[in-house]
Amino acid sequence: MTAEFVRPGEKPRDDLPGRPAPFVLAAGEGERAHLFDQLFTVLLSGDETEGQFGVFTMEAPRGRAIPVHAHDDVHEIFYVLDGQVRVGIEDTDGAILDRVLTTGDFGYVPAGLKHSFRVESLRARTLGVSTGGFERFFAAAGERTEATAPPGAPVIPSPEQLGDAARRFRNEFHHDVRLID
């Protein structure tokens, strides 16, 4: 259960506060969503940071690379908590940075750059930080869940659902580009 400062007679909330307010989450808590073979857990949203940033985790088994994409006004970081994750990023000159990040490694994707990632180890867990609001893309593109592990079978959104989520969260897919071998 989410713990936050609670006034006498009020009960604690079981979700994020939705406004700038102190709160804590126990391990496994947050807003969870399945997308493809991944579990995303939003720990802090743009609602709590007045749109400045969002914080989330991603946990997944070894699998295929997520589709190459870019978001013009969203910066994104990856910090590998456990495992190995290959990150591919194309810079503004067209050069590709293709690197396997291991536990403790950090990666940064400035807004507007095409990027993709793939879990290389049996399982991996990352901490992500993005420009505020984008953290809710995963639930919009996939499905909300109460599960605390990646899905047993991949959650594949319909083209309409994925397209709608991409438009709402300013995420442009580049299916004709490959960044990771």
Rank of each mutant, 00 (worst) to 15 (best):
T2F: 12
A3I: 08
F5W: 13
V6P: 04
K11R: 15
R13I: 13
D15T: 15
R19S: 11
L25Q: 15
A27M: 02
E29N: 14
A33F: 15
H34L: 01
H34D: 02
L35D: 07
F36C: 08
F36L: 14
D37M: 04
Q38M: 06
L39Q: 02
L39V: 01
F40I: 14
T41Q: 04
V42S: 05
L43W: 03
E48N: 09
T49F: 08
E50M: 01
E50Q: 04
G51N: 07
F53K: 05
G54V: 10
V55K: 11
F56R: 04
E59L: 00
E59S: 03
R62I: 07
A70G: 00
A70F: 00
F78H: 13
D82T: 09
D82C: 13
D82K: 15
Q84A: 15
Q84S: 15
G88W: 00
D91Y: 11
G94Y: 02
R99I: 11
G104M: 10
F106N: 07
G107V: 03
G107N: 09
Y108A: 02
Y108Q: 03
V109E: 00
L113I: 13
K114H: 10
H115F: 14
S116C: 10
F117K: 07
R118K: 13
R118M: 12
E120P: 09
E120H: 03
L122H: 12
R125H: 08
L127W: 01
S130D: 11
T131I: 02
T131L: 08
T131Q: 03
T131C: 09
G132I: 09
F137K: 01
A139L: 04
A139H: 02
A141G: 10
E143C: 02
E143H: 04
T145K: 00
A147Q: 08
P150S: 01
P151Q: 01
G152L: 11
I156L: 04
P159V: 06
E160C: 10
E160D: 15
G163I: 07
A165R: 02
A166N: 10
R167N: 01
F169R: 10
E172I: 07
F173G: 00
F173Y: 02
D176R: 01
V177H: 08
D181Y: 00
